[in-house]
Simulated assay, not measured.
Amino acid sequence: MPRQSISFSKPNDEWLKSQIESQEYSSKSELVNDLIRQARKQQAQIDWLRAKLEHSQRSGFTSDTKEEILKQSKTLLNG
């Protein structure tokens, strides 16, 4: 597996350490890989949604732009 050297801000490093101490993860590497997997999955969902929105917009199903709908969706998801 490729090795990387990365730096974390103090609050992020403390959070990572707390996750390991709580035995949620066995190492920082495991945790960071899991976070990246989650982000990739979320990006795939956003890409799928974007494609559906573009199709809806082209079909006349909605008058909102894909940017407006994505912004509303992100607001709701992060709410």
Results as ranks from 00 to 15, higher is better:
Met1Phe: 15
Pro2Asp: 15
Arg3Asn: 15
Arg3Thr: 15
Ser5Ile: 14
Ser5Asn: 15
Ile6Lys: 09
Ile6Ala: 10
Ser7Met: 09
Ser7Gly: 08
Ser7Phe: 10
Phe8Tyr: 11
Lys10Met: 11
Lys10Val: 15
Lys10Pro: 07
Pro11Asn: 08
Pro11Leu: 08
Pro11Gly: 07
Asp13Pro: 00
Asp13Met: 12
Glu14Asn: 11
Glu14Cys: 08
Lys17Glu: 12
Gln19Asp: 02
Gln19Arg: 12
Ile20Tyr: 11
Glu21Ala: 14
Tyr25Phe: 15
Tyr25Thr: 01
Ser26Pro: 04
Ser27Pro: 11
Ser27His: 10
Ser29Gly: 14
Leu31Gly: 03
Leu31Pro: 02
Leu31His: 04
Val32Thr: 04
Val32Met: 07
Val32Tyr: 10
Leu35Pro: 00
Arg37Trp: 03
Arg37Val: 00
Arg37Asp: 07
Arg37Gly: 03
Ala39Lys: 08
Arg40Met: 09
Lys41Trp: 05
Lys41Met: 06
Lys41Asn: 07
Gln42Lys: 06
Gln43Phe: 02
Gln43Asp: 09
Ala44Ser: 07
Ala44Met: 06
Ile46Lys: 01
Ile46Cys: 03
Asp47Tyr: 04
Asp47Met: 05
Trp48Ala: 13
Leu49Glu: 02
Arg50Trp: 03
Arg50Asn: 07
Arg50Asp: 10
Ala51Thr: 12
Ala51Asn: 13
Ala51Lys: 14
Lys52Met: 13
Lys52Val: 09
Lys52Leu: 11
Lys52Ala: 12
Leu53Lys: 04
Leu53His: 05
Leu53Ile: 12
Glu54Asp: 11
His55Thr: 14
Ser56Val: 01
Ser56Gln: 14
Ser56Pro: 01
Ser56Leu: 09
Gln57Ser: 08
Gln57Glu: 09
Arg58Tyr: 06
Ser59Lys: 05
Ser59Trp: 00
Gly60Asp: 04
Gly60Cys: 03
Phe61Ser: 01
Phe61Leu: 02
Thr62Ser: 12
Ser63Pro: 00
Asp64Pro: 00
Asp64Ala: 08
Ile69Met: 05
Ile69Trp: 01
Ile69Tyr: 02
Ser73Arg: 01
Leu77Ile: 01
Leu77Lys: 01
Asn78Ala: 10
Gly79Glu: 02
